[in-house]
Design a protein around this nucleic acid. Structure first.
Length: 883
RNA sequence: GGGCGGUUAGCUCAGUCUGGUUAGAGCACUUGAUUUACAUUCAAGGGGUCGUUGGUUCAAUUCCAGCACCGCCCACCA
C-alpha cells in the first residue's frame, strides 16, 4: 500500500520530472532507420523573450503532438533553439546603455557587439529554462541559435546562391524607415494602425500668376519641402488648363511643373497631388516615370535636413505644425479636414515609420513564390484550420520584394565587400564583391583595401532557413537533414504566416528542393477576458510562470488547450479546470493505490475476456477504448481541445463518478483491482501528452518496472472490447439511477438512507437487466429491498414505488425508464415515418417520375407527404407530453 | 476599399460540414450531502423561440441570400 497526500503537490512534481527528463536525455532523437521520423521545429523564441501565454499555448500544442507521436513509435524530434531577434535584442542592450547615459555610437561596433554577446550569454537562455518548466520535450542538447557559427554559414551560403541567381539586388527605393531604430524595415515589419489625422489642403501659386493657385491635399504637409511636381489626372477637365504649367513651391521657392498621371484619383481630395518622390512610394514611381528630381528633406532620425531651408533641425512632427502655421499666415492654407488613415508603425518600438528613400538590399520574391504557391495549391502543404490557405495564397500571389538590409549592428553582416583601393581601380571595382568567406583582396585590381557592407540582414533572413539550417545544412558530414527533413508539422500564430511560414516554404523549396513541413497548424491568439491582446504595456497579461506556481504546469497546459478551439479569452479562473482535473487524476489514483494490494501487478487491459466481466467492468473498458480511439483521431487532426474534452468526460464522468463509486465495496475482489488498475494505467498513457507531470508521477507510483511514462507506447485500441451493448445497458441503468435520485432529491430523502423500491417495467429485457444489476441500483441510488416486475406482472403499470420512512409514494415511471421505453417506441415510429418521408420526397424530386406519373398520383403522393410530416409533428408532441 | 471569422444558457464555448432523436459542457446560480480518494468533492435543479429578415425543403439552430452588430487580417487613395 502506498501513502499519498490528498493534494497533488504540483510544485514538487513539476520540478522533479522536468529535471529527470532532461538529465536522462529522454527526448533525444537521432537518425534511426528502424523508425519513421516525426519532426517539429520550434518557432524559435527571441533570445530576449520571456515566456508569455502565447508561448505557453504554442509550445504546449507542439509538446502534445511530439509526446503523442513519440509514444506512437515515431522517432520524434522536437528541435529547440532561439532567434537572435536583431532589432529587439539590440534595443534591449541600447536601453541598458542609455541608463549609463550612452548610445551605441559612443562605442565601437566591436565593443557594442561584445556587450550584446555578453547579454546573450547572461540572459539568452531564460526562455529555454522557462520552456523546460512548461514540460517541453525538446531534444535540448540540439538547441540552436540563429547566430551560431554553423548557422551563419547557412545564411551566407543562401545569400550568395540567391545573389548568383540574380534574386538579390541592391537599389534605392522607398522603404519603411524607423527614425527611432534608424533602420529600414520590411513591409511586414511596418504595422498599420488607423490614426485620426488631418487632410491639409495647400495652395501652390502659379509662377506666372501668383494669384492663381492649385490646391493639393496631403496628410504629411512637412514633405511639401521635397515636392518636385504636382500631378493631376489627364482626364480631369478641371485641371486641363494647368497641365505643363509651372508652380512656385512655398518656402524653398522651387519651380515645379504640373504633370499628368493616370494614377491620380480625381475623386480624392482636390484631384491634384503634390509629388514628393523621395518620401512616398507612389510619388517615387511617378518620379521615375516623369524623371523628376528626388529631394530628400529628412535626416535618418526624422529631423529635417538642410534641404528643408528654414525648417532645418526641426523634428518631422514639429515641422508639420510649423509649416501649417506659416502657410496659414501666407494665406496658402485652404483648409484642414479631419481624416482617418492607416499609418505604419515600427513593430518593435511603435514609432511612426517614415517612407524613406534609401539604398537597400532586396530579394526578388516572384520566382521564389511560384513553387511555394504550387505546394499549397496541390495540397502538399496543408493548413489547419484550412481557412488560412486562402490568406496565405492571397499574400503570396501579391508578394512584393523583400527588403533584407537593416542599419543595425546585431545580426548577420551582409557578405558583401567594396573595393576602396585608391588609384589602380578599374570600372569593375565598383561592383560589390559577394563572397562566402572574407576576401583578402579585390578580384579586379588586387587592392587589399576592402570594406564590408555596414548593414546586417533582416532577422527573418536567418529564420526562414530554420527547418534545415538547424540540422547542420549546408555543412558536410553528418547529414541529419536527410532523415529529419522535411519536418512534419509546424505550429504557429496567424500573424507569423507572412513573416515566417511563407518564407520557410520558399526557402525549403529553393535550397532543399522540398517543402519544409507538411502541416501548418495555426492556433488562436491569447486575449484577456475583454478580448484585448495580452500585452505588458496594457498590463493585462497573465504570467504563465505565475500560473505554473499557483496551479501547476499541467493545469496551465490543460486549461489553455481546452480553450484553444479559437482565440482564447483568458482570466485566472480559467486555469481552475486544469488544476481540478490534475487533482482528480491524483486522488482517483490514490484511491486505487490504497486498495490495490500489489501495485506492481502487470495488467494488460486488452487481454480481458469480456465474457468473464460484469456489466460495469465491460462498460468501463468499452468506454476507455472508445475514448482512446477518438482521442487518437482528434490528435491526428490537431483537435486537441476535443481530445481533452473526451478525456475529461471519460475519466471524471465515467470512471470516477460511476465506476469507482460502483466498485467501492468490492475492492477485495482481485479482478476488480485489476480492472481499475489497468484502466488507470492506460489512462495515464492517454493523458500523458496533455498533462505530462502528474501522469509521470502517478505512473511511477503504479510500478516503475517499465521505465518513465514518456517513453511508453500508446495503448492499442482493442475493438473487440468496445462493447456497444454494455454501453447501452449501462445507459439504461444510469438513467434509472438518475431518475430515482431525482425523486429522492425532490422528496428530500437523506442520501444515506436506504429506500425500498418497487420497479415495474414493460420490457422483459429491462426487467432482466435490472434484476441482474440490482447491485448497481443499490450502490448508486441507495435502494434497499427492491422488487422488480416485468410486463404483465400485476396491475401497476409504468410506476415506481418508493418507500422512505413513512413516506410511501407511487409515481409514474415517466421520469424513469418506462417513459424511455415509450419514447423509444414512438421515436422508432418517427424514424420509420421519416424514412418513408425521405423516400417519398426523393421520388417526388425525381423528374422521370414526375413526367411519367399522372398528375393525380403526384398530387396524392404530395398529400401523403404532408400527412406523414404532420404525423411526425404529432408524435413529437406526444413525446413532449410524456415529460 | 478587399478578404476572413463570429453571433447558441447570466458568462466562456461545443454542436451545424453530412437538415430530421429530448440542442450539450465548464463556470456562475438554487437546493441538498460531509468520519469513509478528492469541497480543487458528490447529488439534484432552474436557465436557450440557437442575432435578424427572407429563400430552398414535407422538415432549418444546421443549407442559401440579404441585413445588423462584434472581431481580425490585407491594401500606395495622396
Amino acid at each position: 500500500m502506498i501513502e499519498l497526500s490528498s493534494r497533488f503537490n504540483f510544485n514538487e512534481v513539476d520540478a522533479k520530472w522536468s529535471r529527470y527528463w532532461v538529465d536522462n536525455n529522454l527526448f533525444h532523437a537521432e537518425v534511426n532507420p528502424d523508425k519513421k521520423p516525426y519532426t517539429v521545429v520550434i518557432p524559435p523564441p527571441n533570445v530576449t523573450g520571456i515566456l508569455h501565454m502565447g508561448h505557453a499555448l504554442n509550445n504546449t500544442l507542439q509538446d502534445i503532438m511530439v509526446r503523442y507521436k513519440r509514444m506512437r513509435g515515431f522517432e520524434a524530434l522536437w528541435m529547440p533553439g532561439t532567434d537572435h531577434a536583431g532589432i529587439a535584442t539590440q534595443n534591449v542592450v541600447e536601453r541598458q546603455l542609455s541608463k549609463e547615459g550612452k548610445t551605441r555610437h559612443d562605442l565601437s561596433r566591436e565593443e557594442f557587439l561584445e556587450r550584446l554577446w555578453a547579454w546573450k550569454r547572461e540572459y539568452g537562455d531564460t526562455i529555454i529554462h522557462q520552456l523546460k518548466k512548461l514540460g517541453a520535450s525538446c531534444d535540448w542538447p540540439r538547441a540552436r541559435f540563429t547566430m551560431d557559427e554553423g548557422y551563419s554559414q547557412a545564411v551566407r551560403s543562401v545569400f550568395i546562391r540567391l545573389y548568383k541567381k540574380g534574386l538579390i539586388y541592391q537599389g534605392e527605393y522607398i522603404i519603411n524607415w524607423c527614425p527611432r531604430c534608424q533602420t529600414a524595415l520590411s513591409d511586414e515589419e511596418a504595422e498599420h494602425r488607423d490614426l485620426q489625422g488631418n487632410l491639409y489642403h495647400l495652395r501652390y501659386p502659379l509662377k506666372d500668376d501668383p494669384r492663381q493657385c492649385i490646391v493639393v491635399a496631403t496628410t504629411r504637409p512637412e514633405t511639401m519641402l521635397g515636392d518636385t511636381a504636382v500631378a493631376v489626372n489627364p482626364k480631369d477637365k478641371r485641371y486641363k488648363k494647368y497641365a505643363g504649367k509651372t508652380l512656385t513651391l512655398p518656402f524653398v521657392d522651387r519651380e515645379i511643373k504640373v504633370i499628368s498621371d493616370e494614377c491620380v484619383d480625381p475623386k480624392f481630395g482636390t484631384g491634384a497631388v503634390k509629388v514628393t518622390p523621395a518620401h512616398d512610394p507612389n510619388d517615387f514611381a511617378m518620379g521615375r516615370r516623369h524623371k523628376l528630381e528626388f529631394v530628400n528633406v529628412m535626416r535618418p532620425d526624422g529631423v529635417l535636413n538642410q534641404r528643408a531651408g528654414k525648417f532645418e533641425g526641426m523634428d518631422r512632427f514639429e515641422a508639420r505644425e510649423a509649416i501649417v502655421e506659416e502657410l496659414r499666415q501666407l494665406k496658402l492654407l485652404e483648409k484642414i479636414e479631419p481624416h482617418t488613415h492607416a499609418v505604419g508603425h515600427c513593430y518593435r518600438c511603435h514609432t511612426v515609420v517614415e517612407p524613406y528613400l534609401s539604398k537597400q538590399w532586396f530579394v526578388r520574391m516572384g520566382p521564389l513564390a511560384k513553387p511555394a504557391i504550387e505546394a499549397v495549391r496541390k495540397g502538399k502543404i496543408k493548413f489547419y484550420p484550412s481557412r488560412w490557405t486562402k490568406v496565405y495564397l492571397n499574400w503570396m500571389e501579391n508578394i512584393r520584394d523583400w527588403c533584407i538590409s537593416r542599419q543595425i549592428w546585431w545580426g548577420h553582416r551582409i557578405p558583401v565587400w567594396y573595393c576602396i583601393g585608391e588609384g589602380k581601380c578599374t570600372l569593375k571595382c565598383k561592383e560589390p564583391i559577394v563572397s562566402e568567406t572574407t576576401p583578402t583582396q579585390c578580384p579586379h585590381c588586387g587592392s587589399g583595401n576592402l570594406k564590408q557592407d555596414e548593414d546586417v540582414l533582416d532577422t527573418w533572413f536567418s529564420s526562414w532557413l530554420w527547418p534545415f539550417a538547424t540540422f547542420g545544412w549546408p555543412a558536410s558530414g553528418k547529414k541529419d537533414w536527410d532523415y529529419f527533413y522535411p519536418t512534419a508539422s509546424l505550429f504557429t500564430a496567424p500573424e507569423i504566416i507572412f513573416f515566417w511560414v511563407a518564407r520557410m516554404i520558399m526557402a525549403g523549396q529553393e535550397f532543399m528542393g522540398d517543402i519544409p513541413f507538411k502541416d501548418v497548424y495555426i492556433h488562436g491568439t491569447v486575449r484577456d477576458a475583454k478580448g484585448r491582446k495580452m500585452s505588458k504595456s496594457l498590463g493585462n497579461a497573465i504570467d504563465p510562470l505565475e500560473i505554473i506556481k499557483e496551479y501547476g504546469a499541467d493545469a496551465l497546459r490543460y486549461s489553455l488547450i481546452i480553450n484553444s478551439g479559437q482565440d482564447l479569452f483568458i482570466s485566472k479562473e480559467k486555469f481552475e479546470i486544469g488544476r481540478n482535473f490534475a487533482n482528480k487524476l491524483w486522488n482517483a489514483s490514490r484511491l486505487i493505490l490504497m486498495n490495490v494490494k500489489d501495485p506492481d501487478i502487470d495488467v494488460d487491459l486488452a487481454k480481458f475476456d469480456r465474457k468473464t466481466l460484469d456489466l460495469p467492468s465491460r462498460w468501463i473498458i468499452a468506454r476507455f477504448y472508445a475514448t482512446l480511439e477518438k482521442v487518437g483521431t482528434a490528435n491526428e487532426h490537431y483537435r486537441f481541445s476535443e481530445a481533452e474534452n473526451l478525456i475529461y468526460e471519460f475519466f471524471w464522468g465515467n470512471f470516477c463518478d460511476w465506476y469507482l463509486e460502483l466498485i467501492k465495496d468490492r475492492w477485495a475482489d482481485p479482478a476488480i483491482q485489476k480492472i481499475a488498475f489497468g484502466v488507470l494505467r492506460d489512462t495515464l498513457k492517454m493523458v500523458h501528452p496533455f498533462m505530462p507531470f502528474v501522469t509521470e508521477e502517478l505512473w511511477e507510483k503504479t510500478g516503475k518496472e517499465k521505465g518513465p511514462l514518456c517513453r511508453q507506447g500508446w495503448p492499442v485500441v482493442s475493438k473487440k472490447l468496445i462493447d456497444k451493448s454494455a454501453e447501452k445497458q449501462m445507459q439504461t441503468l444510469m438513467a434509472l439511477v438518475a431518475a430515482i435520485r431525482n425523486v429522492r432529491s425532490q422528496w428530500n430523502v437523506n442520501p444515506a438512507e436506504q429506500i425500498e423500491c418497487h420497479l415495474v417495467t414493460t420490457s422483459a429485457k429491462d426487467a432482466a437487466l435490472i434484476k441482474e444489476n440490482t447491485a448497481v441500483l443499490k450502490q448508486m441510488a441507495r435502494l434497499g429491498d427492491t422488487r422488480i416486475a416485468g410486463p404483465n406482472s400485476g396491475k401497476v403499470k409504468n410506476a415506481v414505488t418508493v418507500l422512505s420512512g413513512d413516506i410511501k409514494c407511487v409515481i409514474p415511471l415517466g421520469e424513469v425508464i418506462d417513459v424511455d421505453k415509450e419514447k423509444k417506441r414512438i421515436l422508432n415510429q418517427v424514424q420509420e415515418q421519416k424514412k418513408a418521408l425521405g423516400a417519398l420526397a426523393q421520388r417526388l424530386r425525381n423528374k422521370e417520375f414526375l413526367k411519367k406519373a399522372p398528375a393525380e398520383i403526384v398530387a396524392r403522393e404530395k398529400e401523403r407527404l404532408t400527412l406523414l410530416n404532420t404525423r411526425v409533428t404529432e408524435l413529437k408532441q406526444v413525446i413532449a407530453s410524456l415529460e
